[in-house]
């Protein structure tokens, strides 16, 4: 039974708890033993991307230590972006003989949820049923920086009753970009508006994504404009689907 330490991500923990809960239940359904290292905080990405690298190191050290104590085989999180940050820790400690190797070991066992299910558990059909017409938002950090392109599609493709429709300009960023969205809201909102337009044109009733941050951005715009599109994290779709099956 693979032993997994949940990397809940701060956004899921506070704003989207159903994503974290679904992740736990889904992993357990797939035969994992899930633990929750309660000392975990945030991956530090807001500080890193804003250029505060000394601050990021403090946070990274805390996260590395927390997950070392959890002593799990794998660390799994429901976010390509936050996982990408943890995978990037070795960069922060390049010249550090103590923290460098610890960061490497930490990064090596950290996985994004769909990547973990498909590549590590070697499961592409979780046994879910979810009748809906949906489209998938491919998040930038997950596809480009982690290189996870196929896993979410494989999992969704095997969900009974789920019809996936293509999203135009799927490769374009939704405009979130962390602090970018509040530093340059003028540009960010143009980006999310184009994304919303593509989603509306896709004919989907449900928008699925694998990063709560993008979904918060796109969903926040959809909600502000009163569009009745349901926004769901892939963990929620798969987990609800397992319950429905």
């Amino acid at each position: 039974m693979p032993n997994v330490a949940l990397f809940v991500t701060c956004l899921s923990d506070t704003l989207f708890p159903s994503v974290g809960q679904a992740t736990v239940e889904l992993l357990e359904h797939l035969g994992c033993e899930v633990t929750f290292p309660f000392e975990q905080t945030c991956c530090g990405q807001p500080a890193y991307n804003s250029g505060y690298h000394e601050e990021t190191k403090k946070i990274a050290k805390h996260m590395i230590e927390t997950f070392e104590q959890a002593d799990a085989e794998y660390i799994v999180g429901p976010s390509g972006s936050c996982v990408m940050m943890m995978r990037d820790y070795p960069h922060l400690f390049q010249d550090d003989p103590v923290w460098g190797p610890r960061a490497e070991a930490h990064a090596a066992k950290t996985f994004e949820l769909t990547q973990f299910i498909v590549d590590v558990l070697e499961v592409t059909d979780v046994g879910a049923k979810f009748p809906a017409t949906a489209t998938y938002h491919a998040s930038c950090h997950m596809t480009r920086l982690l290189g996870i392109e196929a896993a979410p599609g494989k999992l969704l493709g095997n969900v009974d009753g789920l019809t996936m429709v293509p999203l135009a300009n799927v490769h374009n960023c939704c405009g979130f970009g962390g602090t970018f969205s509040v530093k340059m809201p003028d540009v960010s909102v143009q980006m999310v508006d184009e994304k919303v337009e593509s989603i509306l044109q896709s004919g989907a009733d449900v928008l699925i994504g694998a990063d709560a941050s993008c979904l918060m951005n796109i969903g926040g715009r959809l909600h502000k404009q009163g569009h009745p599109i349901k926004v769901m994290h892939i963990a929620e779709v798969l987990n609800e689907g397992v319950k429905q099956a």
Binding site: C140, R144, F180, S181, M184, V187
Partner: peptide, 10 residues
């Protein structure tokens, strides 16, 4: 700062 760091450029 005029970038969402989406990595499309890279």
């Amino acid at each position: 700062y005029a970038s969402s760091l989406c990595g499309a450029c890279t």
